[in-house]
Design a protein around this nucleic acid. Structure first.
Length: 309
DNA sequence: TTAAAGTCAATACA
DNA sequence: TGTATTGACTTTAA
């Protein structure tokens, strides 16, 4: 028995390695008839008889028996409500599927019993499509996470023309009156600011690292969707989960005072890679940290490089 | 270990 | 209100 949730798993029916029969096991306490009677209440008549008969065990006795039970009862149970041990409704097919016998659909993966019908289609359990935007959660009913992954994150074999892709996306957004924030959060799962930066001066595909490429893959695949599919994703409602505490913890962004900025820019003009000593000196002079000054030059170099592309 | 790239998110700006 | 900028933090790669 699967003790985690009280549901009987397929492994519970596995024939014991030491070839102990159920008859032997049950007979140990000398109350075979009572146990059989009790066990058969709620089960099909003769369910245990099958195991108690000598030589009844074929290569796959449980599967065989379940198939038989399904065949015998499929007609009369077809329209009846079928409820699992926890009161969840099951349809007729589920109840007669030995792969999922005693299991919920998502438990099939842990079953050690193979499907009765090898050709039978595996039942897929679809999960709601969720986009995890920063600080938000969104759900759409009829687009699954699987579909999203398949469509938007499908790897592309060829190099993407980043400039063209961004242009196509921007044109689509403009003609459909969709703003950057919505697209960035719902499609790319990035912030508006980030989309703005990468879309203004997209780096060539060859220069991008894996995470940078992934964003363009999404844009590229996005353009392949039909307008209806695009709108479906964009129409997902956002649910804000911001708390008061988060609001209080909001950081304020430091801005270099004008005088400091002028000095820093003056140095940058003649030396965009100042040494450790100069950075330390500037940090002390401005009463700022070494990292703040170092980051200033790092960000400057990076952004200057981008704008020259 | 360090620089570069990626990114967030506050805020400046049109 | 939507977009652009940018300080700061994180991840990646050399």
């Amino acid at each position: 028995m699967n003790t985690a949730n009280g549901v009987k798993s397929g492994m519970d029916f596995e024939v014991d390695q030491e070839e102990e029969t159920i008859k032997e096991l049950v007979g140990k306490d000398g109350s075979l008839e009572d146990i059989v009677e009790r066990a058969e209440t709620g089960l099909e008549d003769g369910f245990l008889d099958y195991f108690l008969e000598d030589g009844a065990a074929s290569e796959d006795p449980l599967s065989h028996l379940l198939d038989q039970i399904c065949k015998e009862n499929s007609g009369e149970k077809e329209n009846k409500e079928n409820v699992d041990p926890f009161g969840n409704r099951l349809n007729g097919q589920q109840s007669c599927d030995s792969v999922s016998f005693g299991l919920y659909p998502d438990q099939q993966v842990v079953s050690s019993i193979g499907p009765i019908r090898q050709t039978e289609k595996k039942r897929m359990v679809s999960k709601p499509y969720e986009i995890a935007a920063p600080g938000h959660a969104a759900v759409i009913r009829d687009i699954t996470a699987e579909e999203l992954k398949n469509r938007l994150d499908t790897p592309v074999a060829e190099a993407i023309d980043t400039k063209r892709t961004v242009g196509d996306v921007k044109n689509w957004l403009k003609s459909n009156n969709v703003n950057q924030t919505t697209f960035a959060e719902k499609v790319l799962e990035k912030t508006q600011g980030h989309f703005s930066v990468i879309s203004r001066n997209p780096a060539p595909w060859e220069e991008l690292l894996a995470p940078g490429r992934a964003v363009f893959v999404r844009m590229h695949n996005w353009m392949k969707l039909s307008d209806e599919e695009k709108m479906k994703i964009l129409s997902v409602e956002k649910v804000s989960v911001n708390t008061d505490l988060q609001e209080k913890m909001k950081k304020t962004r430091f801005t270099f005072p004008k005088e400091q900025m002028e000095i820093l820019m003056g140095i940058y003009e003649v030396n965009d890679r100042p040494g450790k000593e100069l950075i330390e000196e500037l940090a002390a002079k401005f009463s700022l940290s070494f990292i703040q000054i170092k980051d200033f030059f790092l960000n400057r170099r990076r952004r200057a490089k981008k704008s020259n592309l």
